[in-house]
Amino acid sequence: MGNLLNVSPSPHAHGKETTQKLMFGVAVALLPALFTSIFYFGWGAVIVTSVSVASCLLFEYLIQKFLFKKPITITDGSALVTGLLLAFNVPSNLPVFIVVIGAFISIAVAKMTFGGLGNNPFNPALVGRVFMLISFPVQMTSWPVPKGFATGYADAVTGATPLAVVKEGLKNGESLQQLLTQIPTPSQMFLGNMGGSIGEVAAVALLIGFIWLLYKKIITWHIPVSVIGSLLIFTAILWLANPEKNASPLFHLLAGGVLLGAIFMATDYVTSPMSPLAMIIYGCGIGILTVIIRVWGAYPEGVSFAILIMNAFVPLMNTYIKPKRFGEEVKNG
C-alpha cells in the first residue's frame, strides 16, 4: 500500500519543518538544564548523559539494522532526545551499566517493539526511568549533594531530595516548620542548588528551555500550563486546609521533576492527545495525579508515574474529545 501511493499528486511543495529540526530544537532547549547540572554535579552529569545518549543511539541503530532491516533513521534526533531525557531523570552517580540497561528498555522495549517513532503509546524515556527505579531502588534514590566538580562520580557524598526529606519527616511525626529548615530555600531551589536528578534541579534553566520551545512553536502552552496550574491549585487547597502537614505550592513546584515533566516529557508529540481541550484535561490529570502520589503515595515523587498513567488514557481522549466539525451543529435548520 505504501509503495503504491508514493507516486503522489499534489501538494508538491513541502514545508520546512522536519522531524529532525523539531527534535534538535528540543535538544537545544535541554542544553541550559544540562549546563547547570554540569555546574552542580560535575563529571557525574557528563558521564551519565553521554553514556545514555550514546547507548540510545546505538540500540536504535542495531535494532533498525538487524531486526527491522529498514533505512536507518537515528539521525532524526528522536533517540538523542530520549537519551538526554533519560539521563535527566536519574541521579548523577548512577553506575554506567544501569544507565545502559535503562537505555535498552527505553529504546528496545518502549519504542521499537511498537514500531519506532510515532507508534509508541508510552514516553520511552519515562518507561526506562520507571524500570530503573523499580529494579534498582537503592542506586536510583541516592542523590549526590551538588558541589560542582568536587562532587565526583563514584565516591559522591549523597543526600535526600527535598521531597524525600519532607515525606520521611512527616511520616516520622516531625513538624513541617522544622523540616523546611533542613532543605534549601526556595531561591536556592529555583537556581537548582539541591539534590535531585540531573535535569530536574534548576527550575530557571528549564523555564529558559520552555520559552525557547514556545518561541520556536515546537510545543503549545496547553499541556505545561495545565499541569503546573492544576498542581498549584491542588497543593494550594491542601496547604490552606492544613498548613501544618502540607508544604506550600511553591515548594511542590520547585522541588522534584514537575517542570521537567510538564515542559519536556508530557508534551511529547507521540504520547499526548491531539485536540486542545483534550490536552488541557490530560495536563490537569498529570498535575492532580502527581500531587496524589506525592502526598498519599509510597514514593516521594510521582511525576513519571502520573505521566505514564495519563499516557494510557490518550487513545480514549482522542476517541471521545474531538474538535467540533464545521456544520455539525444545525441551527435554525
Binding site: 505504501g2 508514493n6 501538494p11 513541502h14 514545508g15 522536519t18 522531524t19 529540526k21 510515532g118
Partner: peptide, 21 residues
Amino acid sequence: DCMECGSCSYTCPANRPLLDY
C-alpha cells in the same frame, strides 16, 4: 468535508502521505 487543500501534507514534519490516503 475535506476539500483537499493539502495543508496537512505540506506541514507534516514526518512527511507522512496524509492527503494521498
